[in-house]
Amino acid sequence: MDTSHKRTFIASVVLAAMIYSAATADDHIIFQRIRSGLGVRFPARSTEIWMNESSVWLKGSAYVTIERYDLQKRWIVSPGKKRYVEVPLTPAPEKKINNDSVAIQRAGWTYAPTYEWTVKETDQEAVIGDQPCMLIVAEGDADYSSESVELWVAKSAPVNAALYNERVTAGAVDFDWQDLLNVFPTLKNRFIMRFVDKRQPPIAPETTYETKITKVETAAPPPMIYEVPDGFQRVNSVQELSN
């Protein structure tokens, strides 16, 4: 092979590798969450996520959750016990409250705030991780509680932000994500590198939840990550995962 053919061959191999890599590259995100309140900062908890258009793999503490949108299935896997349970991807609608549970005997004990949100973009900027970000502040006010959320959003989304927000953020934040989107719809496509959520509940002291992305990249996931590992025993309830 002469030099020019050799060069062409190497370039083709590199190109093919790049195309293959791009075709199998998924979003890989790791975030840390810290709760603090009453003068105590609790240890950080880490969550790792792999995701693509059809699947999500999410590892929290003891369990791994695999969501398969192509199969409309969700598996909760216990790697320690080598067990898994299959649960509906879309939870069943909550049962209608029967008359008994709203009777006078049960009235007035629980308070669920209905927040009025105001959301403002600020001119504050910072680099979070390696992402240039800008600050958006959301203030929620209800009769007996309030919530203030700082959202540091990346100026340019490093991964598919809309998909990540829909499948992960909505379930990971401590407030109603949809409520916020109703007031500030462009958040839907913004990738949030850091949340600082200060919550003032009606009676208990203020609690702060801080969530920070510590890794965000596009890379090839470990093989078969969106499948339940071979040999794992299927069980019928989440309780059976740990018993």
């Binding site: 007035g108 308070y111 009769d143 009606p202 009676i203």
Partner: peptide, 8 residues
């Protein structure tokens, strides 16, 4: 008076 701290 609700939630111990509030008058409405």
């Amino acid at each position: 008076i609700d939630q111990l701290y509030y008058i409405k």
